[in-house]
Simulated assay, not measured.
Amino acid sequence: MTGAGDGGDEDRSGKLYWSVDIPGLTQEQAEALASRFPGLPGTAVDPRQWFTVHIDRETVEVLKRALESVEVDSVGTGLREIAEDWLDSTRGYMNEDCKD
């Protein structure tokens, strides 16, 4: 289940949003879970169409550097920009509790 929105890591109030990852759900379970929260913009994500993974900050930094070091198409450019935006927008949220 992921938070929907404008594609960024922040909702309209400017706060970071959280997501929930529950491995092993069936399609029916994921859809039922998402529908239990009608006030939230959650959605079941089809793993046949979407690569969904939680990536730590260090890995995002490596990905960004790799995408900067080679010539990429528009998809690669977009991915690099997403990484840059996320790194920039979350820099102030880093603290000792998040570094593990």
Rank of each mutant, 00 (worst) to 15 (best):
E71Q: 15
P47Y: 05
H54M: 01
P38Y: 04
E58R: 13
T59W: 04
S69V: 00
S69I: 02
F37S: 07
S69Q: 14
S74T: 10
S69A: 15
K64H: 13
T43G: 10
I82D: 10
T59D: 09
S74F: 07
D73C: 02
R48F: 06
R48G: 09
F37A: 12
R48Q: 12
T52P: 00
R91T: 05
E81K: 15
V62T: 11
G42Q: 12
F51H: 13
L63F: 11
R80E: 06
P41Q: 13
E81L: 11
E58Q: 12
S69W: 03
G78L: 05
L67T: 08
V70I: 13
D46A: 08
L40P: 00
V70K: 09
Q49G: 14
G39F: 09
D88Y: 07
L63V: 13
V75L: 13
P38I: 06
S74W: 11
P41V: 06
P41Y: 12
T43H: 12
A66R: 15
V45F: 04
V72E: 03
R80T: 05
V62W: 08
T43S: 14
H54Q: 07
R57H: 07
S89V: 00
D88Q: 11
R80W: 06
D46T: 05
R57C: 03
T59P: 01
E71W: 08
T52S: 12
T52F: 12
K64C: 10
S74E: 14
T59S: 13
K64G: 00
D56H: 07
V62K: 14
L67H: 07
E71H: 10
W50T: 10
R48D: 11
T77N: 10
E61L: 10
D56T: 04
K64F: 06
L40E: 12
R80N: 08
E58W: 07
D56E: 12
L79N: 00
D73G: 14
S69H: 10
V75T: 12
K64S: 08
V75N: 11
P47L: 06
T52L: 13
F51K: 05
R48K: 14
V53H: 12
E81N: 15
E71R: 14
W86K: 04
S69F: 02
A83S: 08
S69D: 11
S89D: 12
E71N: 13
A83Q: 02
L87R: 01
I55M: 11
L87F: 01
L63S: 07
W86Y: 14
E61A: 12
E84C: 03
D88V: 03
L67F: 09
R48P: 01
A83D: 02
D85V: 08
E58G: 08
V70D: 03
W50Y: 13
R65S: 10
E61P: 01
D73Q: 02
S89K: 14
E61G: 09
T43W: 04
D73L: 04
S74L: 09
